[in-house]
């Protein structure tokens, strides 16, 4: 692996971790489990466009694992892993189709991440509350995804490390 590529990957992973930490410090402003901005997705979308899907997967999965070990527990790790893996798969496939820009990719990633987390919560808690939270999660994931997609697009344009 070339030094520049390694640097870019390391930069993305640390960006993802810092953004996760910042997000954990923002007080919850909507009383619905699973609703959040998903700042860390900026780093994943950035890696997906600046490098390739393999590096984006590394950024996302390493972040989930490290944040889970540092600040979470087994349960929170299961929630975020479910969200992150589902969201990664959808974003990678959507980017492959080459029909949409960063924004739609990020929107789909955000919505699927939210639904994946709550889906995992339903499995672990043995209920079907997903039904009831779904509209809030689709709406918040869409709005957050637009913002995240725009920020990621700016970063891809401005950071000129060749990988």
């Amino acid at each position: 692996m070339k030094a520049s590529k390694l640097t870019l990957l390391a930069l993305s992973v640390s960006l993802a971790m810092i953004l996760s930490f910042i997000e954990s410090q923002i007080p919850t402003f909507v009383p619905i489990p699973g609703v959040k901005v998903g700042l860390a997705n900026i780093a994943v979308v950035f890696a997906l466009y600046k490098m390739d899907w393999k590096n984006a997967a590394i950024v996302s999965l390493v972040r989930v694992l490290l944040i889970g070990i540092l600040f979470g527990n087994a349960v929170s790790l299961a929630y975020s892993a479910a969200g992150a893996v589902l969201s990664l798969i959808f974003m990678i496939v959507l980017k492959k189709t080459d029909l949409f820009s960063h924004i739609a990719v990020s929107v789909v990633g955000g919505v699927v991440h939210n639904l994946g987390q709550i889906g995992m919560a339903c499995i672990l808690m043995g209920t079907d509350i997903l039904r009831y939270y779904a509209p809030f999660l689709v709406l918040s994931g869409t709005i957050a995804g637009i913002v995240i997609g725009i920020i990621a697009a700016i970063l891809v344009k401005r950071i000129n490390i060749k990988a």
Binding site: F100, A104, V107, V138
Partner: peptide
């Protein structure tokens, strides 16, 4: 353009959210 497709996809998600709100509430 990709941007136009983005807008369509976002509108589709908003419609889905609105439909789910209506159904549940």
């Amino acid at each position: 353009t990709k941007f136009q497709r983005d807008i369509i996809l976002i509108c589709a998600f908003l419609l889905v959210a609105a439909a789910l709100f209506l159904i549940f509430f």
